[in-house]
Design a protein around this nucleic acid. Structure first.
Length: 413
DNA sequence: TCTGGGGTCCTAGGACCC
DNA sequence: TCTGGGGTCCTAGGACCC
């Protein structure tokens, strides 16, 4: 038996823990750059605000209905996520953290999963303040499906058992985990409109529409496990740091600054995981929504002769790549840096003829990174990262970092 | 004016090899 | 008229996820 524990309206729920006045009110949390609504309270959903709605399109509606609008505060959400997970792990040591707000729990051998899940839910709520729902089934895909139904139950828990055809037939095809917009259209065209008809369809047909991936989803719906629990997180293969700009950027100098910052950020990510990057990609693009402007997007990749985590080297190469794809006369909206084919430090192959990088440079870089990690990003940065950063993103309605910043601690008087 | 960011896996097709 | 067969590797693009 597999259970999926999913936090309800996670980002909104995190904000509500520290501002109880937000309870029972419509609240939304915006994506980076205050771009789209990425989390909505039930009250906001009831107003018809769709997931991912661009804020500028729903602003009026929010004002009319007194919706509380917040910028995203990922430090807070990340920390709350760790708290929730640590409570879950007490009940089910075999746990896979699937995303910031979801974990799969292995409940095989548990006598009464439904009772246990209700206890888990109560404890998480009491200890962290975050409401969760728990769905259970024989496979991950069924647990996921059960979770949708759990959200509608008062108890917040639901188990789907084999042979419950009426349950499957109540799930629209597009709500199945692994069936997105494209596939659901194609499946509907051949008359498969809900989870039941999908699961009963000939597998050859499913395979021709969506390949082996979709066939696996189909088997999972019939209770045949195809997706294993991954308790040990697999090391990342790539990492990306990118942002849309707060305003259009035209000059190469400003793009260079931004790219240098993304390069440093991406490098810190892989250093913290003990990885080295084999290759580097830089991309830039104009605003695809502006039909009145000429569009340009490009990306270029370079392979390192030796895998590296040296920010100076990565910045230098990133700037070079940027220079080779930059075209004058465009208003750029977004840029990013990818570190590709990450390998664990120590597993890399040395160069045949060259000496390893010089040790003074390595000492400098290590010291630099140490200072930045101890005293904050602002305490040590490279000239290339710029000082003013006029291109940086908007985040005008961010709440305090209650649990991760001493300055933002809640005061009780 | 304003439209997120960070991932994964699979497949088809081309380059290249013997 | 007539131009092999069987592999691997890499990349770009498409699909999905939260």
């Amino acid at each position: 038996m597999i259970a999926l524990a999913d936090c309800n309206n996670f980002y909104v729920s995190c904000e509500r823990v520290f501002r109880p006045a937000l309870r029972n009110r419509p609240v939304i949390v915006l994506s980076n750059n205050d771009g789209c609504a990425v989390a909505r309270s039930n009250e906001a959903k009831a107003l018809g605000i769709p997931m991912g709605a661009p804020y500028h399109q729903i602003k009026k509606c929010c004002e009319r209905n007194g919706v509380v609008v917040l910028s995203s505060n990922y430090e807070l959400y990340g920390d709350m996520s760790r708290r929730v997970t640590s409570v879950l792990a007490r009940f089910a040591p075999e746990l896979e953290i699937y995303s910031i707000d979801e974990s799969f729990l292995d409940l095989s051998g548990v006598e009464s999963p439904l009772l246990l899940s209700q206890r888990i839910r109560k404890t998480v709520g009491r200890w962290t303040g975050i409401p969760i729902s728990i769905g259970m089934g024989k496979t991950k895909t069924l647990a996921k499906l059960a979770n949708r139904l759990a959200k509608k139950k008062k108890t917040g828990c639901f188990e789907v058992r084999s042979g419950q055809d009426h349950v499957l037939s109540s799930i629209p095809i597009e709500d199945i985990w692994g069936v997105g917009r494209r596939l659901s259209t194609r499946l509907q065209r051949v008359g498969l409109t809900n989870a039941l008809s999908f699961s009963k369809a000939p597998s050859s047909m499913i395979r021709s529409i969506g390949g082996v991936t979709l066939e696996r989803t189909q088997r999972e719906l019939s209770g045949i496990p195809c997706l294993e629990m991954e308790q040990v997180p697999q090391p990342r293969k790539n990492t990306c740091s990118s942002r849309s700009f707060g305003r259009p950027v035209e000059s190469l100098a400003e793009l260079e600054e931004a790219v240098a910052n993304y390069a440093v950020k991406a490098t810190r990510k892989i250093r913290s995981e003990g990885s080295l990057a084999s290759a580097l990609q830089v991309f830039i693009k104009t605003n695809r929504f502006r039909e009145d402007q000429e569009q340009y997007a490009n990306a270029r990749t370079i392979a390192f002769d030796e895998p590296t985590d040296d920010p100076i080297r990565i910045i230098k190469n990133a700037k070079h790549l940027l220079g080779s794809i930059f075209r004058k006369g465009y208003a750029y909206k977004k840029a990013g840096v990818l570190l590709i084919d990450l390998i664990p430090k120590g597993a890399q192959q040395g160069l045949l003829f060259e000496e390893h990088g010089d040790s003074r440079r390595k000492q400098f870089v290590d010291a630099f990174e140490e200072v930045a990690s101890q005293y904050g990003q602002a305490s040590a940065f490279l000239g290339a990262q710029g000082v003013k950063q006029k291109w940086s993103m908007r985040r005008e309605m961010r709440t305090p970092r209650y649990t991760t910043s001493w300055n933002d601690l809640v005061e009780v008087s």
